[in-house]
């Protein structure tokens, strides 16, 4: 990024730091997904929680509420005082029984949503410091952020769950995937995928994600490639995008072959 950041990113970053302030006692159990700070500029803040590392108090719901966040209709959905969405999620494999809300013991089943594919973010992650973008805000937090291979696994699950839905939000996930594949070297991604496949928590979701990658992103007429082109809304460049997506996806699949 260069020059003055978009005001929306400044607000989003501020909301994210507000959430970290509120959840400070739990920070070691939280991984920032979407990695606003590093790979992409997204305006929504997604947090993955490792239930086993969570302290019993304060309760997540209480902490966020006293931090000014208000709960939205679905479990894990929160809104910052400034109108920024915050999603608190638990990897499906660790979320206990049920279909939507994650069972988090004392924290209840409305504080976080269960999400498949996030298992990878608890395995492929690194410590990073996230700074405020507003020059008058001096806050900085060292937190866990998901690594790029984990982000790709998470994105592929989001995309794979709603194949054929023709919805624009899903299209945007395909474009995020494209940008991740472009920004990170194939070697680095393949390393991450190997680690994810070796870990019991992330083995299955990673295998599923790679199957989705092959099915949806390695042929010109495949649906994922179409989603990417649609999301970019740049017809003049669509042939280059198609060829690039296929090339990078094929490279990654080849590099992850044992």
């Amino acid at each position: 990024m260069s020059g003055v950041p978009d005001p929306l990113y400044v607000r989003a970053r501020c909301a994210l730091l507000d959430a970290f302030d509120a959840l400070e006692p739990h920070l070691d159990a939280i991984v920032l997904v979407g990695a606003q700070a590093v790979y992409l500029h997204t305006t929504d803040a997604d947090l993955a929680i490792a239930p086993g590392d969570l302290a019993d108090s304060p309760l997540i719901g209480d902490a966020l509420t006293s931090g000014g966040f208000t709960p939205r209709a679905h479990p894990g959905g929160w809104l910052s005082p400034d109108g920024i969405y915050l999603d608190v999620m638990v990897p499906d494999a660790l979320a206990g029984p049920g279909t939507r809300g994650a069972r988090l013991g004392a924290h209840g089943k409305r504080a976080a949503r269960r999400t498949k594919g996030l298992e990878a973010t608890l395995v492929d992650r690194e410590r990073r410091t996230v700074f405020a973008l507003d020059p008058t805000d001096s806050r900085a937090r060292e937190i866990w952020i998901a690594g790029p291979a984990a982000l790709i696994v998470a994105k592929l699950h989001k995309i794979g769950e709603r194949v054929g839905a023709q919805d624009r939000v899903r299209d945007k996930d395909a474009l995020d995937l494209y940008r991740l594949l472009q920004a990170v070297s194939t070697d680095q991604l393949a390393d991450g995928m190997r680690r994810l496949r070796e870990h019991p928590l992330s083995r299955d979701v990673t295998a599923t994600a790679l199957v989705t990658l092959r099915a949806l992103f390695t042929r010109r007429d495949a649906e994922g490639v179409e989603m990417t082109v649609r999301a970019a809304g740049d017809p003049e460049n669509s042939d280059v995008m198609r060829a690039s997506m296929i090339g990078l996806a094929t490279d990654l699949l080849a590099a992850t072959q044992e």
Partner: peptide, 9 residues
């Protein structure tokens, strides 16, 4: 040719 990571890369 195709530069799959784009022109800035």
């Amino acid at each position: 040719f195709l530069a799959p990571r784009g022109l800035s890369d």
